[in-house]
């Protein structure tokens, strides 16, 4: 991964705003959204449906003109471009879609060739490039198959090869795994990570799936109601229990509402003096508080062990003192009734 902040970023979005006029008044789909993606980074844009993800991707690629703001790709603001210039700027993006959007009338190889035909490459060069790309995504033996003869995961691999064909600077993935099962999702995400590592390409992934962010993203932007709610490096965001993304990405199985008093603590915060479940239980025991784990989620994300833990106290009257002990260790305890 290249993290050279002195070089110009691959993608810079500045104060992007998009409003629509509707009968009931003005709807703000995007509200001063800004984000910067350095070269070679995998940046996740997450949010629920209606958060503005689709509008953002349409503005990024010039399919929709923003009301105000800039989208700077390789130093060029593409929001002001038209015609041939806009078409040329679009080739800086390779787009991967949720439903691959392959042409049924073409074989896998001819689908990968399409962007090159449009870019006006010569036949011999196209053939060589297509062979290379299908090899890159592991589908050399499927070159002559039509999309209908390929599985969902294979179609998405063809989609990725097609997106990479004309050497884009940014691979823009719009919900690339939302239509795939868990195992296939894993292999597609693995492929995206591998491509970034091998080609140094910048990847922007738009998704509503926390697992995608957990597995491949270096940095994240959380959108809500068209505005940026949280933004930053995944490692920093994930270990901060006050962060909205923390809860989105580390979901905790909620125990039954049985009236028992429990304390929720965060694992992996950089300031915490205790970083393991054992350590937390031992810390409480040392203070004369007997406890057990009611529920826990522990993951290694961005190289850091993070998680959430629900601690059940043997004696509910000790809640206050337990809270104090955990707070002293910077574990951000919360009473969960």
């Amino acid at each position: 991964m290249v993290d050279d902040s002195s070089a110009s970023p691959a993608l810079a979005v500045r104060d992007l705003t998009k409003t629509f006029e509707s009968r009931s008044g003005t709807v703000t789909a995007l509200d001063r959204v800004s984000l910067t993606v350095p070269r070679g980074e995998i940046h996740g844009i997450v949010g629920r449906s209606g958060a503005g993800k689709s509008t953002l991707i349409r503005c990024l690629t010039g399919l929709e003109r923003p009301t105000s703001g800039e989208v700077v790709v390789a130093g060029e603001d593409i929001t002001v471009l038209r015609g041939d210039q806009l078409r040329a700027a679009r080739r800086r993006f390779g787009v991967v879609y949720q439903h691959a959007n392959l042409l049924d009338s073409r074989t896998a190889a001819d689908n990968v060739a399409l962007p090159l035909e449009i870019a006006g490459w010569e036949k011999a060069r196209i053939d060589a490039r297509v062979t290379e790309l299908l090899d890159l995504v592991g589908l050399s033996d499927r070159a002559r198959n039509h999309p209908g003869q390929l599985s969902g995961g294979q179609q998405q691999r063809v989609g990725i090869a097609r997106a990479l064909a004309a050497d884009p600077e940014i691979l823009l993935c719009d919900e690339p795994t939302s239509a795939l099962d868990a195992a296939t999702t894993g292999s597609i995400l693995g492929l995206l990570r591998e491509l970034r590592d091998r080609l140094g390409i910048t990847v922007v992934i738009i998704t509503h799936e926390p697992s995608v962010v957990r597995e491949v993203c270096d940095a994240v932007t959380l959108l809500g109601d068209g505005a940026v709610i949280e933004q930053g490096r995944l490692g920093a965001l994930i270990s901060d229990p006050s962060n909205r993304l923390h809860r989105e990405l580390i979901p905790l199985v909620e125990p039954a509402a049985d009236g028992l008093t429990r304390l929720q603590v965060a694992l992996g915060h950089p300031d915490a003096t205790v970083g393991t479940i054992d350590g937390i239980l031992a810390l409480l025991r040392r203070e004369g508080i007997e406890s057990d784990v009611a529920a826990a989620t522990v993951e290694t994300i961005a190289g850091r062990r993070v998680g959430r833990l629900l601690v059940e106290l043997a004696d509910p009257s000790q809640v206050a003192s337990a809270h104090k002990v955990l707070d002293g260790a910077n574990l951000h305890p919360e009473v969960a009734a």
Binding site: L63, R87, R90, R91, Y97, H99, N101, L114, P115
Partner: peptide, 21 residues
Amino acid sequence: SSGKVEAATMMGATRWDVTRK
């Protein structure tokens, strides 16, 4: 499907390209 047309548009296709290809 409009997705196929959009995909070609994003490849920098002209309207003639989209119609023909």
